[in-house]
């Protein structure tokens, strides 16, 4: 890697080597975080662009999933299992949220016969 001109303004992207050992050769914490970041952003974009309520909730689930990856990655790279324990809790929350949200979606669907999010604009200022 040639030492390109690093813009002083841009943050330097240095991988967190340091004391955290590599569980798996060649794969560093950053890899996982990058993947979870991208997945999280995809979920976010999905949530922002899609108008179907259910798909929006699906995207939130996607974001939960992405967070889960990051959690586990951190946990494992620190060789302890708090990450995983935490994912389980994330899981419960996701399940609860899914249940409720979907019940709501059904209700909303019943009310307006459509799943389009932008129909509901009564809560305006």
């Amino acid at each position: 890697m040639d030492t390109t001109m690093t813009m002083s303004m841009l943050p330097t992207l240095v991988l967190a080597q340091g004391p955290v050992p590599e569980l798996v050769p060649g794969i560093t914490l950053f890899h996982y975080l990058a993947v979870s970041g991208i997945m999280f952003v995809l979920g976010l974009i999905g949530f922002l662009t899609r108008r179907n309520l259910i798909v929006m909730f699906l995207c939130t689930e996607l974001m939960f999933q992405a967070a889960g990856i990051a959690l586990i990655a951190f946990g494992r790279f620190h060789l302890n299992h708090t990450g995983e324990a935490f994912v389980i809790f994330v899981l419960t929350v996701a399940a609860a949220e899914a249940a409720l949200a979907l019940a709501l979606v059904v209700l909303l669907f019943r009310r307006k016969e459509t799943l389009d999010g932008s129909v509901w604009t009564s809560m305006k200022g």
């Binding site: 943050p11 330097t12 975080l33 990058a34 970041g37 999280f40 974009i45 662009t49």
Partner: peptide, 27 residues
């Protein structure tokens, strides 16, 4: 889809920021 341009832009701005945090801050 709805206002894709802004959404994607916002999304990837978040991504870039997260990445910078992860890489920069992680150390």
């Amino acid at each position: 889809s709805r206002e894709p341009v802004i959404a994607t832009f916002a999304g990837f701005l978040v991504l870039a920021v997260l990445a910078s945090f992860m890489a920069g801050g992680a150390s």
